[in-house]
Write a protein that binds this DNA or RNA. Structure first.
Length: 304
DNA sequence: TAGCAGGAAAATC
DNA sequence: GATTTTCCTGCT
């Protein structure tokens, strides 16, 4: 179906889709093509409107508005977190970038694959998993595949997953799928829980065994921010660590500040991650996650 | 708490 | 063409 979403609020489709939140969108001509909720959708930004064409009646005006969070007052959010010159510059540069509301299971499954990989590679892995295990769907004469359900992936064999190029991530993906399929982790309950509570569940250990293997604080924060609406979540990856070391050293404990200044060991221990995360949150406030997304873009751009 | 392995592909030299 | 890096976590 074809439809147009009028934009009465700032939005940059390009910055949003290039900001590393999503792995199933590709540039196509003047616009973008994505596979969302198991169906294909084309979106093109034309001034103050989004021209859309989708392969499912479920992907309609309301869906797109909700997916890109166009119902939220972005200027209000940006104003509340514009606490210093560095973030203000990033906001000016990438104005219109928004966080999205993606499917929590797809988000979790995708970010489990994101360790020690760059974005092109993550996209390739996600795509391979979908092609092999996801339900097929048609769009404009071509066949595409949905992100597979946790039930299906929990039944996949580790060696089959490895054959898709997932490497050591293969057993993690199966384990996480199993925990979700068996209801040990209930993603659907989390939108109503607090950030702290839902993060605790994602990182829980029972009798020394992790509920979700391959999910540490960074991956958990990505899922909480990109799919569960926890806007105070602040995922800290290598790019953000570099940015903090360069532009926000005063938010770091002294030993860590020294270490990062020497450009040694960019990886934070779990304790360091917690401290930095809290320190950042108290600086940027309840929309720290938005700040993270703008800083991530700025950090990558600086690196060229 | 620190250090290292993990697998493969992209980025860089 | 070899080496380093890559939106990191788990184990010892």
């Amino acid at each position: 179906m074809e439809f147009t979403v009028p934009l009465d609020t700032p939005f940059s489709l390009e910055y949003t889709l290039e900001s590393g939140q999503l792995f199933r969108w590709e540039r196509m001509g003047e616009g973008w093509f994505g596979i969302v909720s198991g169906a294909g959708i084309k979106v093109r930004q034309e001034g103050d409107a989004l021209r859309c064409s989708s392969g499912s009646d479920l992907l309609d005006n309301n869906f797109v508005t909700n997916y890109f969070r166009l119902d939220e007052d972005l200027d209000h959010i940006l104003a509340s977190m514009a606490k210093d010159d560095v973030i203000t510059k990033a906001i000016e540069k990438f104005y219109g970038l928004r966080l999205v509301r993606q499917d929590p299971w797809e988000c979790l499954g995708s970010f489990v694959l994101a360790t020690n990989a760059n974005i092109p590679r993550i996209k390739k892995m996600v795509s391979s998993v979908c092609t092999r295990y996801g339900e097929s769907t048609q769009f404009e004469g071509d066949t595409y595949h949905a992100f597979p359900s946790p039930e299906v992936l929990s039944r996949a064999s580790v060696s089959d997953l490895r054959a898709l190029g997932l490497g050591y991530r293969a057993p993690f993906l199966k384990h996480v799928a199993k925990s979700v399929a068996e209801g040990k982790v209930d993603l659907t309950s989390m939108p109503t829980l607090s950030y702290e509570k839902s993060q605790e569940i994602l990182l829980t250990e029972l009798f020394g065994e992790k509920l979700l293997l391959g999910v540490g604080p960074k991956v958990a924060d990505c899922v909480l921010l990109y799919s569960l609406g926890k806007d105070e979540a602040f995922p800290i990856d290598v790019w953000i660590t570099r940015m903090i070391a360069k532009s926000y050293p005063n938010l770091l404990p002294k030993p860590l500040r020294r270490r990062l200044a020497a450009n040694a060991k960019l990886r934070l221990s779990i304790g360091e991650y917690r401290r930095v995360s809290n320190s950042i949150r108290s600086h940027f406030g309840v929309y720290a996650g938005y700040a993270q997304q703008y800083l991530y873009m700025a950090s990558r751009e600086e690196a060229g």
